[in-house]
Amino acid sequence: MLTTLAMLMSLSAVNTVMAQADNEVDVQLVLAVDTSRSMDSEEAQIQREGYVSALKHKEFIDAVKDGLTGKIAISYFEWAGDVVPGSVIDWQVIENEQDAIAFADKLEARPLEMQRRTSISAAIAQGAAMLVSGPYHGIRKVIDISGDGPNNSGNPVAPARDKAVEAGIIINGLAIMLRPSGTPGGLDQYYGDCVVGGPGSFVLPVHNIDDFAVAVRRKLVMEVSGIGAPPAVRRIADKPAMSDCLVGEKQWQDMFDR
């Protein structure tokens, strides 16, 4: 009886370890993509195509394979004044080209919906919730946020960022700077001071829509591989902030006070 019980306990422990190993990935990566109406439909479509192209690219797939476990877990959603209903693509493990293409095809098939306002704080909250409740365990947990303007809706962005970073989440930013955003110091400076955070976090600015696909691919490879960002695109979160993290809210209020 005791021998049988010991064997059953041993098998249970082995099964638990195997289950944990199956759920272990190098990175849990949430792609949070801005689809606010400050971008026109052509720019939004090029942005979508940039993500699809990057996910299918050999450089991205090679970065996944070169990881410690050789696999990542990835999910996706779109946001504007809030998370766009129905835009969430749930977690999928990527460890080979077929997996990456399957995820990219899901994204490509989604209808593109543009909505009002910009709530980066809502995007961070959604990404953090998905990371915490997801079925996988990443050595690193990353929210990848792309956007073309400062937070102007919902909760303030800096406290949302700080809460996520305290939970062990890294937030990186893709600052889409195709036209002036009215953000003092530039949108990349604002993202560096108010949005990104965590060890090795960085901001990658995009000034030309034709460069978007390359920028997305470069960003995904850095996030998957865990390599540091070049100094030209890196913002160090523990430096004193130069940006007013409520600038977007103030700009929005000014529109109604005139």
Score class of each variant (00 low, 15 high):
128 A>Q: 03
121 S>M: 02
135 P>Y: 07
138 G>D: 08
139 I>D: 12
147 G>N: 09
134 G>V: 08
153 S>T: 12
146 S>W: 03
137 H>S: 13
139 I>Q: 15
145 I>D: 00
153 S>D: 13
136 Y>G: 03
147 G>Q: 09
153 S>C: 11
129 A>R: 14
126 Q>R: 15
128 A>S: 14
148 D>T: 07
149 G>N: 11
119 S>P: 07
124 I>N: 01
129 A>E: 14
133 S>D: 15
131 L>C: 06
143 I>G: 00
150 P>H: 06
139 I>A: 15
150 P>A: 13
143 I>V: 13
151 N>S: 13
139 I>F: 12
133 S>M: 11
146 S>G: 10
124 I>D: 02
119 S>A: 13
137 H>W: 11
144 D>H: 09
128 A>M: 02
152 N>C: 11
121 S>E: 05
140 R>D: 08
122 A>N: 09
149 G>L: 10
144 D>R: 02
122 A>V: 04
123 A>P: 04
134 G>I: 03
128 A>K: 00
146 S>A: 12
121 S>R: 03
150 P>Y: 06
143 I>C: 00
134 G>A: 08
145 I>S: 01
134 G>D: 08
143 I>E: 01
135 P>W: 08
142 V>W: 02
143 I>W: 00
151 N>L: 09
149 G>I: 10
123 A>K: 00
133 S>F: 04
124 I>C: 02
145 I>C: 06
124 I>V: 14
150 P>T: 06
141 K>E: 14
128 A>D: 04
149 G>T: 10
139 I>G: 10
150 P>I: 05
127 G>D: 02
132 V>A: 15
128 A>I: 00
145 I>N: 00
124 I>F: 04
132 V>W: 07
130 M>L: 15
146 S>N: 10
146 S>V: 06
150 P>S: 10
135 P>G: 08
125 A>F: 04
152 N>Q: 12
132 V>P: 00
123 A>L: 06
125 A>T: 12
148 D>G: 15
120 I>L: 15
132 V>N: 12
135 P>N: 11
134 G>L: 07
152 N>G: 11
140 R>Y: 07
121 S>K: 01
133 S>V: 05
124 I>Q: 03
143 I>N: 00
146 S>H: 06
137 H>K: 14
143 I>K: 00
148 D>F: 11
121 S>H: 05
138 G>V: 06
119 S>Y: 01
135 P>H: 09
130 M>W: 11
153 S>F: 15
136 Y>K: 07
139 I>H: 13
148 D>M: 10
138 G>P: 10
131 L>P: 01
135 P>F: 07
138 G>Q: 07
132 V>T: 14
141 K>T: 10
151 N>W: 08
128 A>L: 01
120 I>K: 00
132 V>Q: 14
151 N>R: 09
125 A>C: 03
